[in-house]
Design a protein around this nucleic acid. Structure first.
Lengths: 216, 216
DNA sequence: TAGATTGTTAATCGATTAACAATC
DNA sequence: TAGATTGTTAATCGATTAACAATC
């Protein structure tokens, strides 16, 4: 039943959003939903919703719709949220600390095991029950503690070096917040949050809402 | 010369990346670059690069290529980064403080004028030379201080309320970090950073790198 | 059974890539 | 001038939407 189909990036980006809306529906106690109703809510066409879901399986029932509980569970499984990931955060500046707290809050499945930094003043500190350790220990720690995900919160200049150590340690994925396109091997997953790109996009959108830009 | 052409989202998302690479090239002192050379660097096809750039104007020179300085300046202009945006941040938790510092650091054009929160314990505090003010003052302050951008760093439950006040105050754009799809009028730009969606995407990518998922 | 809604194929639309004439 | 590379049109590819048969 399982073929080597490549899932398009477009679909991948929609999956967490399906999850979000289904989670809300579940909280509200909604038991079933049709692709049309979900379409109203989420803003994708009913056709697209059915297409997307059918990439992964037949989760609905003709003449009835989809069971919210079941679909939510399936999407969690598809997203790999049915397991736990042990993570470390490298770079305990403002962003690093915010992500620590954020991930702590949204912690379903993501457990922060260690924080790493080069600053001797904060090494040894504890943040949210997690110790700040010396950056030089990173690679060994990843191996010892079976860390699956490394979160990069250092600046652009040091990000690739951190990525190299994370990869050498054996992480399966990297969540990168530095404004750089990291190079990692094919078997390591990479997801970047480019905050500056996002802010610049906002700037573009503002400009183009107001006056029509100099477009050819 | 200026037509009402709609710029596709795909192009918009590539623009900040062009900017990023051109900035690096400029720093390195590179004077000219061809679409082929840029393609090697940035990973888009040369054809796509030429197509993208030609949406906004004719910035190159046949037989020669593009002048880095000029192109960088043009893209900044296209992105609306040739002006200053006065901003406020609403929600001074960990994320709010991190974004305050982040935006402070990457401050080219984005000036944080005020912070807002409902917590009486932090109202009156100063962070990076910016005062934390009472949330009830938000709307008036936006009008008085001609704020263009509101940054939302509150939780999901309060985000839409914050957005409504920002819109009522007259902001031109909203940078949203709450995990919700906000509803704003057509003339207000909205850019959301869905950290949880991003983390869930990483989870999916990790899962699909290792074993082929149950795909039909 | 009749009505509803999925799963899936076919048609359309839009974005990317290829090709090449224009021109520096 | 010859070589290089853009600007731009045409071809291709992939993603979205429409349509409908299958079926609960």
């Amino acid at each position: 039943m399982s073929k080597n189909i490549k899932i398009s990036n477009a679909i991948i980006r929609r999956l967490p959003r399906y999850r979000r809306y289904l989670g809300i529906l579940q909280t509200k106690g909604v038991k079933k939903i049709s692709s049309n109703e979900l379409s109203e809510l989420i803003g994708y066409t009913a056709s697209q919703i059915r297409q997307d879901l059918n990439t992964f399986g037949e989760f609905g029932q003709q003449g009835y719709g989809y069971e919210v509980d079941k679909l939510y569970k399936e999407i969690n499984r598809i997203l790999g949220l049915d397991r736990e990931y042990r993570t470390v955060i490298v770079g305990v500046g403002n962003l690093g600390q915010a992500i620590t707290n954020y991930t702590y809050y949204y912690k379903i499945g993501f457990k922060i095991m260690g924080l790493f930094d080069v600053n001797p003043k904060i090494i040894g500190n504890w943040i949210n029950d997690v110790e700040v350790m010396d950056y030089s220990r990173l690679e060994d720690y990843i191996k010892e503690a079976s860390i699956a995900i490394g979160i990069i919160c250092v600046n652009r200049e040091n990000a690739q070096d951190v990525a190299n150590h994370l990869v050498a340690g054996g992480v399966k994925g990297i969540w990168n917040f530095a404004p750089i396109d990291l190079i990692v091997p094919d078997n390591v997953a990479l997801e970047s949050v480019h905050l500056s790109d996002s802010l610049h996009t906002l700037s573009f959108l503002i400009k183009n809402k107001n006056q029509r830009t100099n477009i050819k």
